[in-house]
Design a protein around this nucleic acid. Structure first.
Length: 378
DNA sequence: AAGGCGGGGTA
DNA sequence: TACCCAGCCTT
């Protein structure tokens, strides 16, 4: 072998030893769910961390654990309490599955999370990767994980081309993950891979000089670190426009509806929102808004409605961006001199972030409005 | 196999 | 602005 021979990727045991030793020196050691041996804490953190960064999760995790110290507490809680604590974290099916999973753990496993990966993966909201994380991190079971961080580390270290979300690449990555996970300290090893992806093998500006795998990394040797994983093909996001009806009563309560259709923000509470063409004028909104408000039994003053619509139209669009669409809102502010039914405290309802934005827009539109008192339900 | 699903951190 | 994050479920 010549002096210039390029070193091959490490064998499984050497690979695991290298990253595990690195984790003990330089990995993350003080996250609140780490090294507790508590499957409930590991599971709760893993669900929250799906598609969500650590810094965002920390506060939600602490509040959840305070409200529901055990899986039995969570299982016994009302759905609305779970959703309200989750509100703002996004991907709300995670919260519904979280609650269903807690109930299943109590009903099927006596309140103890199973050690077996297959059993874990059969539970709501737990897929193959999360099952591997809970089994290895909480129970020391030899099980692999494959999240976004691990995919990036493997794609670079082994020089794997292709969309990392595509079926053939995912299949190969799982084979590597399965092959490399060690029998000894599998949890520490999995933690090492996640820490590497989060702190060294980052999407951009990777810190290869501080990586324990730098001497055998294919992407680094070939100068392709910034090119791998291969970029996903991006699709254009639909842009949707809505008129939000902000109907406030004499007490400052606001009319909200629970989203019952499957889809975006299901189970959460929002003011009624009417889809409108982007360049529509306020005159074309009139009949839609009038019919919607009258459907509640309230009478609508035509002049007041015209004024409110014109005021709304004069506002800039409020933009709310999601991964898969871009939404624009204008807020029509309407007053009701009486009292709307079923008033509840705002902090007892799950509201998506966009409702907080709409609240600010309504306050800005008429700064005498007090929206902090409660919410009217219809 | 493809699409839907939130919100925020980061460069 | 664009990318992407401790993915899973439904169709």
């Amino acid at each position: 072998m010549s002096a210039q021979a390029t070193p091959a990727p490490l064998q499984a045991k050497a690979f695991a030893d290298a990253v595990t030793a690195w984790q003990k020196r330089e990995g993350r050691q003080h996250l609140p769910w780490q090294y507790t041996g508590d499957a409930y804490k590991v599971w709760l953190s893993e669900i929250m961390l799906q598609q969500t960064q650590v810094s965002t999760v920390l506060n939600y995790y602490a509040r959840f654990l305070d409200a529901f110290p055990t899986v039995a507490d969570l299982a016994a809680a009302p759905s609305e309490a779970v959703m309200t604590l989750w509100a703002g974290l996004g991907y709300y099916s995670r919260a519904r599955n979280l609650h269903a999973c807690a109930k299943a753990v109590v009903a099927q496993f006596g309140g103890q999370f199973p050690r077996d990966v297959e059993a874990l993966a059969s539970l709501p909201g737990i897929g193959r990767s999360t099952a591997g994380a809970v089994a290895s991190l909480a129970h020391g079971v030899q099980a692999p994980i494959l999240d976004g961080n691990v995919k990036r580390v493997f794609c670079r270290y082994y020089g794997i081309e292709g969309d990392p979300m595509s079926t053939p690449v995912v299949k190969r990555l799982w084979e590597i993950a399965q092959h490399n996970v060690p029998a000894v300290e599998p949890g520490r090893y999995n933690q090492a891979l996640m820490d590497l992806g989060a702190t060294r093998c980052t999407p951009r500006n990777a810190r290869c000089g501080q990586c324990p795998l730098m001497s055998t990394c294919v992407a680094l040797r070939q100068g392709r670190v910034e090119q791998l994983p291969s970029p996903k093909l991006k699709k254009p996001r639909p842009e949707l426009h809505f008129v939000a009806i902000w109907l406030v009563d004499a007490r400052g309560c606001v009319w909200l509806q629970q989203q019952t259709e499957r889809g975006l923000w299901k189970d959460l509470w929002m003011p009624p929102c009417i889809p409108v063409p982007v360049n529509s004028d306020s005159g074309s909104w009139y009949e839609l808004v009038r019919a919607l408000v009258q459907s509640t039994g309230l009478q609508v003053n035509a002049d007041a409605l015209r004024t409110a619509l014109n005021s709304a139209a004069a506002q800039p669009w409020l933009v709310h961006e999601l991964t898969h669409r871009k939404m624009h809102f204008k807020t029509v502010l309407l007053r009701h001199d009486g009292v709307l039914d079923l008033c509840k405290a705002a902090d007892a309802l799950p509201l998506p972030k966009v409702v907080h934005k709409l609240t600010e827009a309504a306050v800005a539109q008429q700064n005498t409005l007090d929206v902090g008192q409660g919410l009217a339900l219809k």
